[in-house]
């Protein structure tokens, strides 16, 4: 494998968990809900995926378990914020803290165990093509799933009635309610979807990226995913580009450090946030853009009686 292939492979592996977590949050925010609990849902996905894979010996069962764990955490968030109408920011933060703590407890017995790694796809002939074969046809399955989810979310949001309803609920929940749509049900479903992909992103970390369990192994990726959603102005295409851009900057930075170029790692890890602030500035200067893309009800609780 040539050096460039290795670099691109690591970039893809670094970007995929960001994309998985962010694409779900994008749907959540499009429905008007701000879930700051991504980090917690991810880390719960990571630990339960790892544990289940250890117990059953199958990475796929682990992945399934991670999705269940992420969804369970998100349903807790949904119950709090939608049914009990608690503050979304505070609830999201507590979900993150709960996830980090609980995962440490669950995972304490698994620290240091050798992990089970999800294999790579191998398609006869195609994967063996020179140069592009391994990159295009030889990734792990979750890479393809993440890209498929992105395309699927883009299609659903833009082209289908379901997507129209999700956007309408996120834009103006009072109007959507007045038209007879169940704001809370739509949001429950979107939050659950976000939890599922966050769990998947966590499983990617503990079963593909570094196949082992380390406490707090999400290392802030949930927050980067959150920043990416804003950076993308809630558009799936830009989200994928952003995820790969950040993944790329991250990995190239690591290589640069390895080669002794003296770029502080703190600077690199702050880049996603700097980019997000810039994106917010650009969005806010263009009223039209912000009206079109920003879910106007974002973060606002909905009480149907009003």
């Amino acid at each position: 494998m040539s050096a460039y292939e290795a670099i691109i492979l690591t970039i893809i592996t670094a970007s995929t968990p960001l994309l998985l977590a962010a694409i779900g949050e994008l749907v959540v925010e499009r429905s008007g809900v701000l879930n700051l609990g991504i980090e917690g849902m991810m880390v719960m996905g990571a630990v339960s995926g790892f544990a289940m894979a250890q117990i059953t010996g199958s990475a796929w069962v682990g992945i399934l378990m991670a999705m269940v764990a992420g969804t369970a955490m998100s349903l807790l968030f949904a119950f709090m914020t939608q049914t009990l109408v608690t503050n979304q920011v505070a609830t999201g933060l507590s979900i993150t803290l709960l996830g980090l703590g609980l995962s440490g407890l669950i995972g304490s017995g698994f620290v240091g165990m050798p992990g089970i790694k999800l294999g790579y796809v191998s398609i006869p002939v195609l994967t063996d093509l020179p140069y592009v074969g391994k990159l295009v046809f030889g990734q792990d399955p979750l890479v393809y799933i993440s890209l498929g989810l992105t395309v699927g979310v883009a299609y659903v949001l833009k082209r289908t009635r379901m997507g129209l309803i999700i956007r309408a609920v996120g834009q103006n929940h009072d109007s959507a309610h007045a038209l007879g749509y169940s704001v809370i049900k739509v949001r429950y479903a979107c939050i659950a979807f976000g939890g599922m992909t966050s769990g998947l992103a966590g499983a990617y970390l503990s079963l593909v990226y570094t196949p082992q369990w380390i406490e707090n192994m999400t290392a802030g990726r949930g927050w980067i995913a959150l920043a990416l959603v804003v950076f993308s102005t809630w558009l799936p295409g830009r989200l994928a580009a952003g995820a790969y851009l950040f993944g790329g900057v991250w990995i190239l930075g690591l290589y640069a450090q390895g080669m002794g170029m003296g770029i502080p790692s703190q600077l690199l890890s702050s880049l996603p946030y700097v980019a997000t602030i810039l994106a917010l500035i650009v969005i806010s200067t263009n009223r039209r853009l912000s009206v079109i893309n920003t879910p106007a009800s974002l973060g606002r609780g909905f009480v149907p009686d009003r």
Binding site: R161, L164, N172, D174, A176, I292, N293
Partner: peptide, 16 residues
């Protein structure tokens, strides 16, 4: 009238 500003005329009507 409670319309969805970010949606098109047709999308608004379709929702209702």
């Amino acid at each position: 009238f409670s319309l969805f500003e970010a949606l098109t005329v047709a999308e608004n009507i379709s929702l209702a």
